[in-house]
Write a protein that binds this DNA or RNA. Structure first.
Lengths: 216, 216
DNA sequence: GTCTATAGCAGGATAGAC
DNA sequence: GTCTATCCTGCTATAGAC
């Protein structure tokens, strides 16, 4: 017989799919927990419980707490900035006022994922303390950076920025602004209004355009 | 007799001074250790040993690990940025090319104190996870911010920036740039050249000056 | 005021049942 | 593949000697 009553053919989840789902749930819970308690402060039991499993199940899916953390770091789905940027990019970034749009996009990212900044800070601290994983962080950063660079290049083109100014350098500056303003906004929201980021971007891009006249 | 051989009057350190010195040594060791291992990852024994004392001595000077950490946060001597800014400020910031000077100053701070960024990140993470200490972090940030604002105002005046642009807002943007670039430089030094900070500041201040023509 | 010793507890990781 | 129970280590904080 082809069809066995004991094992229905239309079963939705294979064993592998169940395991994959467990892994995904554990990764989600880990992201939340690491963001809230930090790598050292978060316990594996806490993470497992947040996902609805036991520590045994966690260790059956990840070899150690560190392995779980590093998988999060390499997991590109975590990077909302890159995802949002790509979405906006393929959506036609140059149609609206590009710089304003870029500012809005990044503010949205900051507001939507309240744990994003904390988790990034954890990754950064972990990487500077464990040089062997710095490469992984650099790879992850490069992904976001390239997505951002696309947006920046579009904004520069629309504004008619001088060609010799590298979009790569400007993207780095924009990323720095983003990181720094998000961080300060958490400490003192009054100092960092919602519009400040867009305003800073406008100053920046205006200054870049004025490079034409400058010597070097 | 005035002078007692058993207890020389020209003794350098009183008991209070000895204790103050112990406290200072413990605070220094704590700053290094927290920067290298994080608040949760650093053990009090580790800190005490780094200072050349025992855990008992540490607890005789600070009521808990957290109290030690918070004292570091409030300790204004820790803030090299504010100190350097004040030094430069009273030294005459407006004499040289102000923006370039500002860029050099901040790069120096980043290079001189390699642990500065890590410790600041620890403070930030601790504050967002323990709202009751966010006020202390905000106070500390305000100190640096005001020192920076003085420098920024001087640079703006020298460049003839429009009066209606607030030095406070610009100082926030400059601080964000600083934080963000220092952070990225640790991950990928090739992306963040030494000159990039100065260049970004030049773009920024040039763009601000062009505000005159702008609508809003 | 500092040291040694230790109480008391929590967390990472594992073993074996199911 | 997941759960329960547990080992072992390492940590914070304290007590008492000097």
């Amino acid at each position: 017989m082809d069809a066995q009553p004991e094992e229905p053919v239309r079963r939705r989840l294979t064993r592998a799919e169940t395991k994959a789902r467990t892994r995904a749930l554990l990764l989600d819970a880990a992201a939340r927990t690491f963001a809230r308690k930090g790598f050292t402060g978060a316990s594996v039991e806490e993470i497992a419980e947040a996902a609805g499993f036991s520590t045994g199940a966690l260790y059956s899916n990840f070899s150690s707490k560190e392995a779980l953390f590093l998988e999060l770091l390499s997991d590109r789905r975590r990077d909302r900035l890159a995802a949002a940027a790509q979405a906006l990019d393929s959506h036609g970034a140059g149609t609206a006022e590009a710089v304003t749009e870029l500012g809005r996009l990044l503010v949205n990212v900051a507001d939507k994922d309240i744990e994003f900044a904390a988790l990034q800070a954890e990754f950064w601290l972990y990487a500077i303390r464990n040089p062997q994983v710095m490469g992984a962080l650099a790879d992850s950063a490069r992904e976001s950076h390239q997505a951002l660079e696309g947006l920046v290049a579009a904004a520069m083109a629309r504004r008619g920025a001088p060609e010799r100014v590298s979009a790569q350098a400007v993207a780095t500056v924009v990323a720095a602004l983003f990181i720094g303003l998000v961080r300060q906004r958490r400490v003192d929201p009054d100092c960092v209004s919602e519009e400040l980021f867009g305003q800073a971007l406008n100053w920046l891009f205006t200054g870049i355009n004025a490079e034409d006249a400058d010597g070097d």
